[in-house]
Nucleic acid binder design. Structure first.
Length: 262
DNA sequence: ATGGCCCGTAGAACGGGA
């Protein structure tokens, strides 16, 4: 079973990229962030044709999340919740579904804008509330996967230039504390379960030839319940879609797990 | 040189992203 997460920065623009990528990398579950589509415009039919069912929640202009599931393998996902029931939020950033014996939470964490911003306060509160809700979701023992754009680079090795980014948005102590709190609650950063190439990131700024210079951050993550750890076979970041014309600024992250009780 | 790019909503610039 393969699960992936990808911030596509507009599914309207990136639908061909998503379809091409799924054709070459037929993951069973794909969590998408920043669809930037209202639900009436969601391309469910095109995805269905490609063999994927979808659960989605969007709004005009900003945010928007979706979970695609492969019809021929895991089948349709069952919606648990749009948003966090304990955090009143008009922004569509969260989707929890049941699929393949897992609870999959697709998350688009707030950016925060700047450390002094009201949006930063919102970011921290949003994460704290998410963490509390995840405890509840896990209470019945169903293993949980948290996949998405966290907008946090957990450690200095997740940053191309740690000195330049020291204390900055995505790297600040309060944000990194929140990431650690998620890990401390019993989730594992699958990327760090394996030997990885140095300086492998998941996001590169559109400006300053950042991708060519590999001036990136690792801010997209797939965390899994510690009980799933023995089943995790690999975690990779696929930089190929970032090389295309008119790419998303994020790359997909993929986790491969063995099936069932292995 | 602290901004450069990209997207959506506009129907020109601007907010937002990270």
């Amino acid at each position: 079973m393969k699960l992936a997460t990808w911030n596509v920065n507009s599914l309207k623009i990136r639908l061909p990229h998503v379809l091409d990528w799924l054709a070459g990398t037929p993951v069973d579950v794909l969590c998408i962030q920043e669809t930037k589509l209202t639900d009436d415009k969601f391309p469910a039919a095109a995805l269905e044709q490609a063999g994927y069912g979808s659960v989605f929640a969007g709004q005009p202009t900003y945010n928007g999340v979706a979970v695609l599931t492969r019809t021929g393998s895991v089948g349709a996902a069952e919606l648990i919740s749009v948003g966090n029931p304990h955090f009143d939020d008009p922004q569509k950033r969260l989707l929890a579904v049941r699929v393949g014996g897992l609870i999959v939470v697709c998350a688009y964490f707030p950016n925060g804008q700047s450390l002094e911003s009201e949006k930063f306060v919102y970011k921290l509160a949003w994460i704290d509330s998410l963490n509390r809700w995840l405890q509840e979701l896990r209470a019945d023992g169903t293993p949980l996967v948290l996949a998405g754009d966290f907008n946090i680079a957990p450690e200095d090795r997740d940053v191309h230039d740690p000195a330049l980014w020291a204390g900055q948005l995505h790297c600040s102590p309060p944000e990194r504390e929140r990431f650690r709190a998620l890990v401390d609650s019993g989730l594992v950063d699958t990327f760090r379960l394996f030997e990885q190439p140095p300086k492998l990131f998941s996001w590169w700024d559109y400006r300053q030839l950042a991708f060519r210079r590999n001036a990136g951050l690792r801010i997209d993550h797939i965390l899994v319940d510690a009980s799933l750890r023995p089943r995790v076979r690999a975690c990779t970041i696929d930089k190929l879609p970032r090389r295309r014309e008119q790419p998303s600024d994020h790359a997909p992250v993929v986790v491969e797990m063995s099936d069932g009780d292995a």
